[in-house]
Design a protein around this nucleic acid. Structure first.
Length: 267
DNA sequence: ATGGTTGGGATCCAA
């Protein structure tokens, strides 16, 4: 039995439904996790997803900013939304699903970008990001015996040297500063998570999932970063068949600045 | 060292 799950920061789901549908028709993941939907729950375009077989949809929306959603072909059980940092942002949604005899807890995150200045004393947005990451350290992949875990999302941190186009040039750039990358490594270590993308494609192979809108020619410059992630509890590691980073989606009409990342399991 | 683009929704903020 196979199972596939995609994470994609869509940067306005209403504007980008044409490419969401294009992706789903071509790639048919069992579950699609979206971030930055930038709409309220009532404004979310449910019908096009239901028409493609994604009948189980849960949304944590917000007017204009942030927002996360899970669209699934398999039923979603025991869903909840956690308010990280207690500021009322829609940045997390979670559910349990079943695949064969397995029960899996899925978390979908949109971690704060953190602003431009990597100093919390002058940039509160960077402080918010660090606090958010600190709170994520409590999330344990093996929290409930008999239930596996998958964590996906736009985590807005590129933790490893080969997760960015230039390690040296990005050390003082928000998303790759040591306090962020060490924080993320602690979230992984303390939570007992497995970084599935690096399990499949170890360093020093470069992996990017985001290319800035600001580059004149994103493809020629290729100054990307790995900001989007798929983690799991270690028990699922042996069943990972492949990871697909759909770089071509960055070149589609009216693209997101992030591309879809898919994990395919063979159980 | 600087400025570059995009989206939402309001004429600026966040990314």
């Amino acid at each position: 039995m196979t199972f596939s799950i995609t994470t994609w920061n869509i940067n306005s789901v209403r504007l980008r439904m044409p490419i969401v549908e294009q992706f789903l028709v071509r790639h048919k993941p069992d579950i699609l996790c979206l971030q930055e939907i930038k709409c309220r729950e009532a404004e979310f375009p449910l019908q096009p997803l239901k028409d493609l077989g994604y009948r189980h949809i849960i949304i944590h929306g917000q007017k204009g900013y942030h927002g996360v959603a899970i669209a699934s072909k398999v039923p979603l059980l025991e869903d909840h939304r956690q308010d990280y940092c207690g500021v009322g942002d829609a940045r997390h949604i979670s559910a349990i699903f079943e695949r064969g005899s397995r029960r899996i807890r899925l978390h979908n995150f949109y971690v704060p970008a953190g602003g431009d200045e990597p100093d919390r004393s002058i940039n509160p947005k960077f402080g918010h990001k660090l606090d958010f990451v600190e709170e994520m350290k409590a999330l344990k992949a093996g929290a409930v015996p008999g239930i596996s875990s998958i964590l996906v999302g736009d985590l807005n941190i590129a933790p490893l040297e080969h997760d960015v186009w230039s390690h040296k040039q990005l050390l003082k750039i928000v998303s790759h500063t040591p306090v962020e990358t060490e924080g993320m490594k602690e979230v992984i270590r303390q939570g007992g998570w497995l970084d599935l993308m690096r399990h499949h494609t170890p360093e020093p192979t470069k992996i990017y999932t985001w290319w800035s809108y600001r580059a004149k020619d994103w493809e020629a410059a290729d100054k990307g970063r790995r900001l989007d992630h798929i983690w799991s509890s270690p028990d699922l590691g042996p069943f990972l068949d492949r990871i697909e980073v759909l770089k071509e989606a960055r070149g589609w009409n009216q693209p997101s600045d992030h591309v879809p990342v898919t994990a395919v399991f063979k159980f």
